[in-house]
Each structure stands twice: as structure tokens, then as C-alpha cells.
Design a protein around this nucleic acid. Sequence first.
DNA 1: AATTAAAAAAATGTATACAAATATTACATA
DNA 2: TATGTAATATTTGTATACATTTTTTTAATT
Lengths: 206, 206
Amino acid sequence: MLENNHSRPASHQSYEILRDRILNGELPGGSKIVEEKIAADLGVSRTPIRESIRKLEHEGLIVNKRVVKPSEKDLRNMFQVRMLLEGYSAQCAASYLKEHDLQSLHQCVEIGRTGTVEEIMEANERFHEIIVRASNNPVMIDIIDRMSSIIFLFRKTVVFYNRPHLIDEHEQIYQAIKARNGEKADRLMKTHLQADLEFCLHLLGC
Amino acid sequence: MLENNHSRPASHQSYEILRDRILNGELPGGSKIVEEKIAADLGVSRTPIRESIRKLEHEGLIVNKRVVKPSEKDLRNMFQVRMLLEGYSAQCAASYLKEHDLQSLHQCVEIGRTGTVEEIMEANERFHEIIVRASNNPVMIDIIDRMSSIIFLFRKTVVFYNRPHLIDEHEQIYQAIKARNGEKADRLMKTHLQADLEFCLHLLGC
DNA sequence: AATTAAAAAAATGTATACAAATATTACATA
DNA sequence: TATGTAATATTTGTATACATTTTTTTAATT
């Protein structure tokens, strides 16, 4: 049951709940999404639920009234876009990143070597987030954000299985950015994402 | 009044109507969008109207209950994304485009030199569309599509004022693709979009 | 047993009513 | 005149009812 209180609208609350349930696997890929069921479950009417479902559809997490189950092709396509946008972002980072953010990047690498699984996952996300924000381009950030909810379902796997070289690659990217070598940062980021993708697909037996 | 007939749902019909009205300037940037007004106008209830408004919000055509009025920065950001994605698409086109599509590209250039204003506008869109589709990446195509509704508001201006060299640039891109020179096609596409952007911004006095 | 048609059930689309939140107006006071 | 506040009106958010469409079940026929 949602809070009736002075919180966000029910449509937004239910959006967040559904999103979480999808991302943490509670609603696995392929699950049928039925408005009335969800509404009853969350204790609100169908009206706000519809809205949250539409939002999730737009985000790509729900397709055809079912929780998305991205195909190998889908992932390749999303990673191709990421390579272009994050590669460019890495270039921007090399040109513009301030000392403070550079230090944060370095910290992410450190945590990647010494942290717990949860810490590492968080640091990985942050590493990419810092770089993407360096693009200083909200349109780009938004596109990556939207894809990242789907990609999240995979990064989990990658870190859980502790992909070899992942942190080394981050370190190299960090070094290139620190050395203000944009062209190299771009190239390394693309290679990094390509490796990520292949590792995911391999693990998932694609 | 919408057709009650065996057509698409009212929410979808009203979406398309609203979208058209925004794109053709009938609902100019900054207009307040009020659910009840629109509903009365189109002769349906608020329920389907809400849905279409949400869709337009996702598409970026409505922001804060008002028709979007993109800032210079917004345009720069969108064009930056376009440069990356369409540049890559041009590369793909150079590698993979079939003879038939090559001929279509060439036709677009021809029409660009000889057609009426409407024909030229259409040919311009088609030129880019053929190249984007060469990426063979629905995720990428979708991103560009979503931005293109906003960008459309500008391409109109550019063609109306008949930007110098626009068709020459298309021709050069076409030649690079035909020559299977992906790197050059990429570079030319980026330059082309940059020029488009600057021309738009200049015209609009940004 | 497989295939199809009819019936039933379930789910979605839309209209309407009312509640909650926002914006607007009118008026009082400094 | 400017500013704050109460009253009003407008607009959005949500629940509910019903219509339409889609899916599933059942039964009949080959």
C-alpha cells in the first residue's frame, strides 16, 4: 500500500516500485504486466498504474505488456550507442575534467581493487557516471540514463563474475583522461565497453 | 471530433493530432497545454488526452505543460548527439549500403538541386533517413527519431532559407559513401551537421 | 486427436465524478 | 503603490463504472 501522505503522486511512487521490482529481478523478463493486478497489489486504482506502465514502456523496461527480455541484438545495439556517446564523453573528460572529479575517478578505481562486491558495483557505475557528466550534455546524459536501466541488469552479472581486466581498463582510461589525451580516452572507453559487452554475451551463452 | 470507427485508439489519434499541431506551428512554443481544453476540442475525455500528452512529454515536445521552446543549448546538445550517431551511420552506409539505396541517395541530391521547396525538404529528410537506417541499429534509429521531431522545427527554416552548400555537402557525403570511404563519410557528415546547426542558430539570432 | 466456433472471462480503453493541488483574483493593509 | 492573504476558480490527480477488444476456455465437428 502506498503512502497517502504528502509524498509524490501515486503514479510516480508506483513507477518507482515497479522499476525496482524489474531491476532487482522480482519481476523477471517476460512477466506479464496486468494493470488491475498491479493496482490491487499496490492498493491504488488503475489510473496511476497505467501512467507508470507507460513510463516504463518508454524507458524500454516494458514491451508489449511484458517485462523486457533484451536479445543479444538489443544489447549489441545499446552498447554501440554507448560506445559512441561514452567515447565522446571520455574525450570531453580529458579536455575538461576538474581535479576534484579526477580524484573521484581515481577513487573508483581504488575501490574496484579493494572494495566489497556492492562497493565495486557502485564504484563502477560512478566511474561511468562521472565521465558521462563530463559531456555536459543533458540530452546525451538522458539517453544513456534511459539505456542504463536495461544495461544495469547486465552490469550486475559482469561484476558478480568479476570480469578480468575490468578495473585495469578503468585505470587506463583514468590515466588517459588525467594525461589529457582525449583521443586515447575515447579509444580505450570504446574497447572497454566492447569487452564488457562480449563478456556479458558470453556469460549469458549468447 | 475524432473518428469513433475502427481506427486507432483515441489516445493515439489525439497524440498524432497534437504532434502535428506542434510541428506545424499551430501550437507554437510556449503554449500552455490544458488537458480539458484539448479534450473538449478533440471531442474526447481527458483520459486519452492525458496519455497523449505524456507521450509528447517523453518525446520532449511538451515540457512543464507547455509546448517546448528549445534553447540554443538544447539544439547544440541534440546536434552533438546527431553528429556522433549519424557520423557512425554514414560509416556504416559506406561499408554496407546496397546499390539500390545508393541510387536513392543520389536521387535525393538531384531533387535537392531541381525540386520545389516541398520536394527538397522531403528529399533532405530522406537523405538522412537512408543513412541512419544503414546503421541497422533500431536503438540508434529510435533515438534520432525522437530528436528529429524537435529538430524538424528547424530543418524547415534551413531549407526555407535555402542554406548555401547544403546540397553540395550532401553530394560530397554521397560520393564518399559510394567510394566506400567510411572515415571520410563520417567526417563529412559531422561537418555537414555542424554547418546546419550554426546556420539555424544564426538565422534565429542565437 | 486436431480444428474450429461459440461462449465466457479477462484485460484494456474511455468517460465521468470527485478530491487534491495550483494558479488567479480580489481585497485589505502597510 | 506595493504586498500579503483569503477566497475563488482552474487544473491536475485518482477512483470508479462501463464499453470494447483480446484472450482463454469450452464444446462440437471432422
